[in-house]
Design a protein around this nucleic acid. Sequence first.
DNA 1: TGGCCAACTTACCAAGAGGTGGCTACTTAC
DNA 2: GTAAGTAGCCACCTCTTGGTAAGTTGGCCA
Lengths: 134, 134
Amino acid sequence: MPAVETVTGATASWDLYERGCPSRDLLDRIGDKWSILVLGELGEHGRSRFTELRNRVSGVSEKMLTQTLRALESDGLVLRTVHATVPVRVEYELTDLGQTLRAPLRALTEWSLQHTDEVLAARAAYAARAEHGA
Amino acid sequence: MPAVETVTGATASWDLYERGCPSRDLLDRIGDKWSILVLGELGEHGRSRFTELRNRVSGVSEKMLTQTLRALESDGLVLRTVHATVPVRVEYELTDLGQTLRAPLRALTEWSLQHTDEVLAARAAYAARAEHGA
DNA sequence: TGGCCAACTTACCAAGAGGTGGCTACTTAC
DNA sequence: GTAAGTAGCCACCTCTTGGTAAGTTGGCCA
């Protein structure tokens, strides 16, 4: 089974294809719909406030945004700073660890933007084939 | 920005941060837990049979595997070939479009494998902080 | 005749995702 | 006095996700 060495800094070898692998869980978390968008936003715009994120990530509910930000914070990807000013101001930004995720995530989002046409066409063709067969 | 040439020749510009954007849906589909693993497997091992995939992607149920493969097929990422041999043999492989996803996906899975330690440590620290605060 | 294989498909059910709306505390502005 | 704004939390409720398990198809072998 996956040999894991923690705090000591020894190497851990994990297998994504094994159930219960923590890397698999992590992958699932960062592959989450809202996580990708929030991380992308923070990557592009830098430090942002809660309402800015809510407005820029269209369609996210406050609950989901809070939940997503909390998870990212607990994973060490996002830093949350509370300013004790008079209307309370909270700012979010990527941590160093979060920064390292920018490139992989951007690769994925760019792929998505660039190949949406092809995928849409493929779906239409697939649907047509299915209808023809039925 | 995302200016894409469609079949008709018209340019479509999509914004991931807009609700209902097809690219966002697509991102969600390929960011799916099982999709990532299945695509990864097909990328590494090449053409594979149903049961091979089921065995190699530990923990996936037949239902989910079928569902995932169907979605990937309809999206034009995976090619499904049925051999009318005696016990029916079905093989799956990446299409050309699917191949273009390998690099972005590998970037993500490698990130995940490489940073699991740090994330686990961050979670522990966060939990400790929360406990201390409570 | 009966059972077996692959690759599903379907029915059923529990858990969780995620939306809505109300509540908070604090202060400034009307 | 009251409304508004910030950054949430909480309870409630619904809809989806996804797991389990059983059925199916269709030649073939004993």
